[in-house]
């Protein structure tokens, strides 16, 4: 396809029409919005201290709206599955990749443990400081990406990651079901979450546990996605 083709009249008119539409929408929004102050979000943040978790955002994400988080995990799970399924190509030959330079290889070896540790820290301290499972998981996946691009003979431990991922997914739903059994609400906080413990590592009942589970799940799914996309690039 010729990328340099001139702007056609239809492109310009389409663009103009789209801008008029967007401007109209923004005009309506700006002129009419009420910007309410007493939103559900503020109410949830005010309530969050009851769960004994220092990071109020974590309480909202993992506990009050924990079901949405379970849904997001499912979205990530099937997206990763779909990428694996569509890009999988059993006939592809193992392509020869250019050897990466010495500096990258050495740096990757040195950096990976630190990145892993940092990711785990972000995950485990998600209920105390900014961060949490999603962020920690993505950091770990970035470390895996570094290893994948730096070395030709690095193979992801597929079995281990698959086991971790399965374990994480199952235990998320199981924790929810135990809450349903004990407290009559799905994802009920059935572990002690005394407010006096707030700020300690062991506080907040099930909230830090779920966030670590989310971290494991996100880390393994993102690693699979990265690996699938990277291998596809090699073969073509």
């Amino acid at each position: 396809m010729n990328l340099k083709r001139k702007l056609a009249l239809s492109d310009i008119s389409g663009f103009a029409l789209a801008s008029v539409l967007v401007l109209t929408i923004f005009n309506v929004i700006l002129q009419n919005s009420l910007l309410t102050q007493n939103s559900a979000g503020n109410a949830l943040l005010a309530l969050s201290s009851h769960e004994g978790v220092a990071n109020a955002v974590t309480t909202v994400v993992v506990y009050f709206r924990g079901f949405d988080t379970l849904g997001e995990i499912a979205v990530l799970f099937i997206a990763s599955l779909g990428i694996g399924l569509i890009l999988e190509n059993p006939h592809a030959k193992q392509g020869k990749k250019e050897e990466s330079n010495f500096m990258l290889k050495t740096a990757a070896k040195l950096l990976f443990p630190i990145i892993l540790l940092f990711g785990i820290y972000i995950m485990v301290y998600g209920h105390l400081s900014p961060g949490g499972g999603f962020q920690g998981g993505v950091i770990i996946a970035s470390g895996v990406l570094l290893l994948l691009i730096s070395s030709n003979n690095f193979h992801m431990p597929h079995k281990l990651i698959a086991i971790l991922e399965t374990f994480a997914g199952i235990s998320y739903v199981f924790i929810g079901l135990i809450g349903l059994l004990l407290l009559d609400t799905f994802l009920g906080n059935f572990l002690p979450h005394d407010i006096s413990q707030m700020g300690m590592l062991f506080s907040g009942g099930i909230i830090p546990i779920i966030y670590i589970i989310v971290g494991i799940k996100v880390g393994s799914e993102m690693s699979f996605i990265v690996q699938n996309l990277l291998q596809r690039g090699e073969h073509d």
Partner: peptide, 20 residues
């Protein structure tokens, strides 16, 4: 029985598949 099972069980199954 709770209506949450209609969503929790299929999701649990989906996560369990590598074991099954």
């Amino acid at each position: 029985m709770s209506s949450i099972l209609f969503i929790a069980l299929p999701l649990l199954f989906a996560f369990c598949v590598p074991l099954l």
